[in-house]
């Protein structure tokens, strides 16, 4: 790892000041991707601004309208085990409990995961399928406007994810095919039914990161069953291809995971 200077921010305004003073600074949350990337010398920020101790970025609260607001620095283990999340959006709790392994889930955070927008990360699928809103220190963004491509988001360099609000939904489930070694998603499908209808979003498989599958959403609107999506295939040319699986394999996994997610709710 190249040299770096560490700053622990006590508040969002502290973090804003620290990044403004840094030559090539990066925000650090749980560090479960960033530290590993720095160790490989694939990232070499001059400064790290640690957001993990900012009280305003922590916690999970059920709001009056039934939505759930989760602070960006909340770790995956806390989302997975939170009673409100488990009751209101069980698919989200289940997803958080499938990220990495127990030790990674104690450090990795919701904000860190979505800000990195790794195509193999799980959370983006939940945000897209649930129609979540990302709150930053500057603005609020719909999930669909937040994720802009592989490892790309609408975030500016000095913008901090503060919280994510997930609207209430009727039912939700996430089915994931993890890479057996890394536990990263090779294809994960989040299915949610709510006031705005059925939404299906896919992690792990797409070349441009998370995406929705409108054909599956339409099919599930008219018939809520695993059979309804059994013959819907996403185009293989849009899928990732690597040593772990070809694009055709991943395209097939998307259909299989969609069936499993719906079956889990039927």
């Amino acid at each position: 790892m190249y040299e770096t200077s560490y700053h622990r921010a006590g508040s969002v305004s502290d973090a804003e000041a620290a990044i403004a003073n840094a030559e090539d600074g990066k925000f650090l949350a749980g560090g479960q991707t960033l530290i590993a990337t720095m160790k490989q010398r694939l990232a070499a920020p001059t400064d790290l601004i640690d957001l993990r101790h900012i009280a305003d970025l922590k916690g999970i609260a059920k709001q009056a309208d039934g939505s759930i607001r989760i602070g960006a620095a909340t770790c995956h283990a806390d989302v997975a085990t939170n009673e409100d999340v488990r009751t209101s959006i069980p698919g989200l709790a289940d997803l958080a409990g499938k990220i990495g392994d127990p030790h990674v889930r104690h450090m990795g955070t919701l904000g860190g995961s979505i800000a990195n927008n790794d195509p193999a990360a799980d959370y983006p699928a939940a945000l897209m399928a649930l129609g979540a809103t990302v709150e930053t220190n500057k603005r609020s963004l719909a999930a669909e406007d937040f994720f802009t491509g592989m490892f790309e988001t609408a975030l500016e360099d000095d913008e901090i994810v503060v919280a994510v609000t997930f609207p209430e939904c009727t039912t939700s489930a996430y089915a994931k095919f993890p890479n057996p070694a890394s536990r990263y998603s090779m294809a994960g499908v989040f299915v949610a039914k709510g006031d705005s209808g059925v939404r299906v979003a896919v992690s792990g498989a797409g070349q441009d990161g998370v995406f929705r599958v409108p054909e599956m959403e339409k099919a599930l609107e008219s018939q809520w069953s695993a059979d309804a999506v059994a013959n819907i295939k996403v185009p293989a040319e849009d899928m990732l291809s690597d040593i772990h699986g070809s694009s055709e394999y991943r395209a097939n996994l998307v259909t299989v995971m969609a069936k499993r997610a719906v079956a889990a709710l039927s």
Binding site: Y6, R8, G31, Q32, L48, V104, H106, M107
Partner: peptide, 23 residues
């Protein structure tokens, strides 16, 4: 990946090879 570096920080298991001492 391997977990041989697991320790407890504030009562929770974490991987100490993916955490900075300053953190």
């Amino acid at each position: 990946q391997c977990g041989v570096c697991v320790i407890h920080m504030d009562g929770k298991a974490i991987k100490s090879c993916t955490t900075l001492a300053v953190q």
